[in-house]
């Protein structure tokens, strides 16, 4: 059943075929749990969110009419489960673009900025960098983290992200851009901190 298309998978679920649940879990389960881990930060909450997502998603699959929308719909269920888990938390703080203005901006005399965009080819160094990025993603305010995870990590389009989160496209674009700027800024600090010790990132130091 692992080779089924989403359309075939949906049909199998609707018919209550033996193995349909396992096929669904095999295809989407770990991805949904990883999303929960990244959103919740700690594993206990992530497990609650994953169970809630899996239960509601599987129960709701039978009513889903458009197989092409399956992935977006699954993330909508997952995002709602995350929001329910966080509903008693303080409102998400806002990220301001002013936080990322290069020094000297107001005088339009900005000093040179290190270009560390040539990422390391070495697998270990690259993994180290991804781990640093994962840590920074976990520090983003939840509303921004949600958008960044769906759009840049999970690869949904801007419209799909807006559909999954039930917000307007301009709101997705604004949060996504600020989240990216925040991560860029943190990676720059990571680069600066590591530049003297070892060349973790490629490019000019």
């Amino acid at each position: 059943m692992a080779e089924m298309t989403d359309e075939e998978l949906l049909e199998a679920v609707k018919r209550d075929d033996p193995g349909a649940f396992d096929a669904f879990v095999d295809r989407y389960g770990r991805r949904l749990m990883a999303f929960g881990v990244r959103m919740c930060g700690h594993h206990e909450d992530a497990e609650d969110v994953f169970q809630e997502t899996l239960l509601k998603a599987y129960q709701g699959l039978k009513d889903l009419r458009e197989p092409k929308a399956l992935r977006t719909w699954l993330y909508r269920v997952a995002a709602n489960a995350c929001r329910m888990k966080r509903r008693k938390e303080k409102p998400s703080r806002e990220i301001s673009l002013d936080d990322f203005k290069p020094a000297g901006w107001d005088d339009t005399m900005t000093a040179e900025i290190p270009d560390w965009s040539a990422l390391p080819d070495d697998a270990t160094e690259r993994a180290e960098l991804r781990t640093a990025l994962e840590e920074e993603i976990s520090q983003l305010p939840p509303d921004y983290r949600l958008v960044l995870l769906l759009r840049d990590v999970e690869g949904l389009s801007t419209q799909e992200t807006a559909d999954a989160l039930q917000v307007r496209v301009p709101a997705v674009k604004m949060r996504l851009h600020r989240a990216r700027m925040a991560l860029r800024s943190q990676l720059e600090a990571f680069h600066a901190a590591n530049a003297g010790a070892k060349p973790v990132m490629g490019g000019a130091a």
Partner: peptide, 22 residues
């Protein structure tokens, strides 16, 4: 503009790296 080009390049690298996390 060096700062602009470096800023744009590193933002692009950040997006690429986030994609690798997926």
């Amino acid at each position: 503009c060096q700062p602009f080009n470096a800023y744009r390049n590193t933002l692009e690298a950040t997006i690429d790296l986030a994609g690798e996390c997926g």
